[in-house]
Nucleic acid binder design. Structure first.
Lengths: 303, 303
DNA sequence: CTGAAAGCGCTTACAG
DNA sequence: CTGAAAGCGCTTACAG
């Protein structure tokens, strides 16, 4: 075949928009350039950022991702996992809405690599999660740096490891002058907690670290309703950086971002490496959180 | 081959967990049992319910779905569409965050069927969207049935068709005693609107229909802060049924649900039908909204 | 009714 | 260096 012919063929192929059939390729290469994201987070609060990170990392590798939302239904889970295996995904990323619960499906002994992100993984697997302790430390330290000396902690149910980690960080920095207030992940609980705190005798807190943004929002609202100024009288910091809540609070919440997108990116890259046969050390990888400064804590944002 | 042998083979196949390679199957059948969901709704507010509907309708047909979030980046859009076509998806569902904007990618003349859900479609395509006019009618009628006679409408930017449709429905039922207040889709605007309404001379509204739940939340908060009781003095109804906002408002919001999940289900079924070669009438299919009664409008919930 | 062959669209390894 | 063949894992159509 002459140079010229070869060129002509190539040109025509490009012109005509020839695209090789990825399915046929996969049949040979054992690589489908497809991965599955399995989650029970129907609301997408945690899974969407993770998903965004995965896509960001893998889109230009030509990898597409199947999103499978399985609620808490083992049967649905099996259906989705089987469908993914039949389609020969290169790997699976399991995700969820809390780091101390497993998805209702058995992902061990699959013929493809599995990586866990923001959900509890199998013992010898690779698991990514946010560093709750470090994130909480960031928040409480900021309150201390702002000169706050009576810092309270209003948070979610003690059954969550995240809650325990965060309050452990709080305790370490603040001691036990104030009780940690455990409750629901709701605004109702935030209001209740503020009522408790302000009805108690003795000096009131001048800083409140909240277990999530919903609680923080209610705390800020509750304070305003009592005529207490935020951030002048009391500094409030939340957790999650859930835009819809944090940005709409009056004043907008300073809060902790878990960097879920970075987490997704790492998980994506890792599952790809595994799929390509690279060895990856198993274990729990903890990614740092970040302080997002808005207006609910006051002070110089460059502190 | 004896009956017995055939049985034994089948049994062994099941035992050993034999699963046919879907990729190989696809090569022959021209069906990959895979569809793509393309969206620019990074937050997932609208796309996630649509996605849930699609999955619900198609999971037991063995169809998996690629989720592709393309922000507003045409280049990214093309990358994803090409990746999907290479993988021979059976069809594509385009979705978005408003019904009068197109995705930044050309989906005409693709070799696979395309269906639009909650985004503007190509002229001769199948498009699904919620019935804004009917939804707004539901809300305003409810306010009227509750005996409200001075009903105001606080909503988003007039540039949205949804906004214009909803206010057209409002106008039709209420007349023009009150101006329609157009603004941002934010709580800040809700507060501002209440300030305007309550500073104006003359009788105050006794019912407020809001363009979305964020505005409604702020309206309820603003009213409470002015000592106006909701729902005793003023009935408020929102739009969207965005759980995180509607359920946490004090009192929780009565609101309109666009039935996005049903929309996703229809879109999924339709794209599948097209993939199977069935003819589908092009055009815009409008799905009805639903009134979700909580406590912000008062009255008998069975009205 | 059973069993072997041809073919889906590619890539890899091998013979000329 | 070029070109034909074999094969990935299936299904379909055809010959015995």
């Amino acid at each position: 075949m002459a140079e010229e012919t070869r060129d002509r063929v190539k040109r025509m192929a490009a012109e005509i928009g020839f695209r090789p059939n990825a399915l046929a390729k996969s049949l040979l290469s054992n690589r489908s350039f497809t991965i599955g994201l399995l989650t029970n987070d129907t609301y997408g609060r945690f899974t969407l950022p993770v998903m965004a990170g995965i896509t960001e990392a893998l889109a230009d590798h030509g990898v597409s991702v199947f999103l499978c939302t399985i609620e808490d239904d083992p049967a649905l889970g099996k259906v989705h996992v089987d469908a993914m295996l039949d389609k020969h995904v290169d790997g699976i990323i399991a995700s969820g809405k809390r780091i101390d619960r497993r998805l209702p499906v058995d992902l061990s002994n699959l013929p493809v690599p599995v990586v866990y992100a923001f959900t509890e993984g199998a013992p010898d697997s690779v698991t990514f999660c946010a560093d709750d302790f470090q994130g909480a430390t960031l928040a409480v330290k900021r309150l201390i740096e702002l000169g706050r000396r009576r810092i309270a902690h209003v948070t979610g149910p003690e059954s969550f490891v995240s809650v325990r980690e965060r309050s452990r960080a709080y305790r370490g920095l603040v001691g036990d002058a104030f009780p940690v207030l455990y409750g629901e992940w709701s605004e109702a609980w935030g209001h209740e907690a503020i009522a408790k705190l302000w009805m108690a005798p003795g000096p009131k807190p001048d800083g409140i670290f909240c277990g999530n943004d919903q609680i923080a929002r209610a705390v800020v609202d509750g304070l305003r309703e009592r005529g207490v100024r935020v951030p002048e009288d009391v500094s409030v910091i939340g957790f999650d950086n859930w835009e819809i809540v944090a940005a709409q609070t009056r004043p907008p919440l300073t809060t902790i971002d878990m960097n879920l997108k970075a987490l997704g990116r790492e998980a994506g890259l890792t599952v790809l490496a595994l799929a390509e046969g690279h060895a990856v050390e198993p274990g729990i990888r903890t990614l740092p959180c970040e302080l997002i400064v808005r207006q609910s804590c006051g002070g110089d944002s460059k502190l």
